[in-house]
Design a protein around this nucleic acid. Structure first.
Lengths: 238, 238
DNA sequence: ACCCGCTTAAAACAATCGTTCGATGCGTTT
DNA sequence: AAACGCATCGAACGATTGTTTTAAGCGGGT
């Protein structure tokens, strides 16, 4: 009962494709499940059905493979996030602005339609897993690829919930990230605790449950009385 | 700029104590920061200023050391959680019941007063870090030591917010865990994004910010129309 | 003084890690 | 047909992992 998914990877081979793309897909999944340090190059190449030296040949190093995964995934995902963010608008028969923004941030991180092999959820889980490990490269990759988008969303959230101070805004965005990541990182815990009622693998359910919870949390009144004035004055640019 | 805390551990020796307790303290902190697999026995013993073989001598194995940390921390922490939970009551000049319950769950996980060396926050961070790694022992330890308490809190939350279905209740408890854990796991991300405004190391601030956010989220209306009736009927025992 | 337990010390253990090397096969170009 | 570039292969590299082994140190009881 150790790592069933890993075994399945060995049995069900990827559809016919070249070594490079096969490695990218398998590595994304295995890294997401077991962490970067938790997967050896030997496990990885065995699961992908390629030679041990293939990783270093095609990507230079194990870290190069990780960077390649980011290069492949980040751009389309951020583009979809920003596109959905720019589509947000107040309309009579649409959800409130705040819910739209939060959904625009979360949904592209879970969407499984785009690519093969687990899709976006695997990549989100990968980022969540990496955020724990002390991998300097991973930290740089995340910062480089996601800082701009995150700041855009914090700014949009600030406009949707103008009563919050800057600190409160960042805190609540941080809690949003935590709820999202933890759902990806540790899906077994809630499935076990809830006796199977909740299934984090069901991305539809995660989205449905998370958006109203987080949005309502954002609407909680500001407690920081000293910064309520600062919030009115200060936040203009960005 | 790699792992400054690790270096500090090397310089500032623990106060005079025997090898066993010194190892426990150093290991808790190092495991919390770099993960179980991320810390070698050699790093660990060097940081504690003891011989390499001390871990295996006193705890049998590296995993035995981890189990010992759990044995030491879990009981007092759960006792404090349950004690604070039983103290929750509706009074005129106290926070609402829901806020009290959430604070009773979170505060003992952050309290730094109880023990030396980082205190509870380090242990919470350790659990969060372990929840990512695929360490079978860690999963068993968490399940064995925290399942009962978690179920008690879910039940209490269900009474405080009776409009939720069982699934929604577990989901929101799951988001609560995520927000709490992520604050411990990845404190640098929000500090960086917020340009230093938010400091997750300030446990007081985490508590102040988190409780109203989560509590308000719990009060979001139920979306699961089919289970709203089930919530009225079903949830009685436990 | 001797022996005994408990703890610490240094050294070595087998196993596994990421990476590199040289040889081989295959397809295209000259 | 010869020569070349590219991908893959098995094998080995040095380094590091957790653990074990063996010897030495120390304190108290007979």
């Amino acid at each position: 009962m150790g790592h069933p998914i890993e075994d399945r990877t060995l049995l069900v081979a990827e559809p016919a494709s070249d070594t490079k793309t096969r490695l990218l897909g398998v590595a994304e999944r295995l890294f997401a499940e077991q962490g970067f340090d938790g997967v050896s190059v030997r496990q990885l190449t065995a699961a992908a059905g390629v030679n041990l030296a293939a990783v270093n040949y095609h990507f230079g190093s194990k870290e190069g493979l990780l960077a390649a995964i980011f290069e492949q995934r980040c751009r389309p995902m951020n583009e979809e996030r920003l596109r959905r963010l720019s589509d947000c608008a107040e309309h009579a028969h649409r959800p409130p602005m705040l819910e739209q923004i939060i959904a625009a941030f979360i949904a592209p991180a879970l969407a499984s339609s785009a690519d093969r092999g687990g899709g976006r959820a695997a990549f989100t889980r990968l980022r969540a897993t990496l955020s724990v490990e002390h991998n300097e490269l991973a930290r740089r990759l995340i910062a480089r690829h996601f800082d701009a988008t995150s700041q855009r969303f914090v700014a949009a959230l600030g406009r949707a919930v103008p009563h919050l101070s800057r600190a409160e805004l960042y805190w609540r965005f941080h809690f949003l990230l935590g709820a999202l990541y933890y759902s990806m990182i540790n899906p077994s815990r809630i499935a076990y605790l809830s006796d199977g009622i909740c299934d984090p693998a069901d991305v539809e359910a995660v989205l449905t449950q998370m958006v109203p919870f987080i949005a309502t949390g954002f609407r909680a009144p500001s407690l920081d009385r000293s910064s309520r004035g600062r919030a009115r004055r200060g936040r203009r640019g960005e």
